[in-house]
Nucleic acid binder design. Structure first.
Lengths: 136, 136
DNA sequence: TTAATAATGATAATCGTTACTATTATTATA
DNA sequence: TATAATAATAGTAACGATTATCATTATTAA
C-alpha cells in the first residue's frame, strides 16, 4: 500500500469535502467543490490525489457499472444500492450478502465457487423506499 | 426491448464468434476475430452490433470494474469470478448469492435494503483452483 | 537556508466508446 | 424481377473520463 510523503492543501480539501459529504461524488463533482476554495486547482490534481488516497487506503474508489468512477470516504467492506428512479446511491453493508457454500470449512474445495473468494463487489439496482412511496 | 430489423453478415459473424468462444471477450478481441473473416469490418460496426444485440436481449454486456466492457452470450442471471492471479473470468450462478432479508415476504419494507431490489450485479475477486494448486 | 524532491497547474495524450455521413446491402412491394 | 424504402455499413471524427508530461512551486529534511 502506497504511502503519501508530503502533504498538500489540495489533498486536505479533498478529504474534508469527502467527509462532509455523505454521497458518492465523482471526480468532476469533487473538482467543482474544491474550486470554490482553491479556484485554480487542476483536474489532474484531483485525479492524482483521489488515486493516491485510494491506494493509501484512506478512501475507496467505486467503479460504477455506468458512468464515471465515484469516491467514498467509507473504506469498510460494503456494496451499493442504486435507485433506478432517482439515481441515488445508498450504502449496503457487506454482510447483507452471502455466498452460498462459503460459510462452512472455509476451504475453497468445498465452496461452489471456482476458487478462493477474496473480495466481493456488488451493486443492487432497484427502487428506493422514497420513490416507491411517491409512486403509491 | 429493441428489435433488429435487417440482418447482416457482420452481426452473424459476431454471434457465431461469441457462441463458439466460452470466454468473455471485449470489443477489441471480437473485432480482431471478425477481421479474420471480414477484413475491412469497422470497429464501429462491432460496437453498434454488440449494443444492439445486448438491447435485443441476445447477449449480455458485462461492465467490468476494471478495463473495457466484455460481452457474454449467456443471458441468464449470473455474476463473475475473476482470478487475480491468471485473470481468468468464470461464470457464477446468481443463486449462489443471497441477499439477507430478501427471502421473506418479498416486501421491501421488511428487507434490510433501502428499497426494492430488482437486480444484482456481482463480481467476486479471488484465486481460482488452478492457480491455488499451482502455488501449492 | 539550502538542497532534495514531492506536488502542482496547465495542457497534451490516451483509451474506450459513440456519433456522423456518404455509400452499400437488405427487404418489402409493385 | 425491378424498384423504392430504409437499415446497416466502412471510415473517420468526436467524445468523455482518465492518465501522462513537464516546467514551476511548495514541503520537508538536513
Amino acid at each position: 500500500m502506497a504511502v503519501i510523503s508530503k502533504h498538500s492543501k489540495q489533498r486536505d480539501a479533498i478529504m474534508e469535502y469527502l467527509h462532509g459529504n455523505g454521497s458518492h461524488p465523482n471526480a468532476h463533482e469533487i473538482y467543482s467543490a474544491i474550486r470554490e476554495e482553491i479556484p485554480n486547482v487542476s483536474l489532474g490534481t484531483i485525479y492524482r490525489n483521489l488515486n493516491q488516497l485510494a491506494e493509501a487506503g484512506e478512501i475507496r474508489k467505486i467503479r460504477c457499472t455506468d458512468g464515471p468512477d465515484r469516491f467514498d470516504f467509507r473504506t469498510d467492506d460494503h456494496g451499493h444500492f442504486i435507485c433506478s428512479c432517482c439515481g441515488r446511491f445508498y450504502d449496503v453493508p457487506r454482510d447483507l450478502i452471502m455466498i452460498r457454500g462459503d460459510e462452512g470449512t472455509g476451504s475453497p474445495e468445498d465452496s461452489m465457487l471456482p476458487g478462493r473468494a477474496d473480495s466481493l463487489e456488488f451493486e443492487i439496482t432497484g427502487v428506493c423506499l422514497d420513490c416507491l412511496r411517491e409512486k403509491a
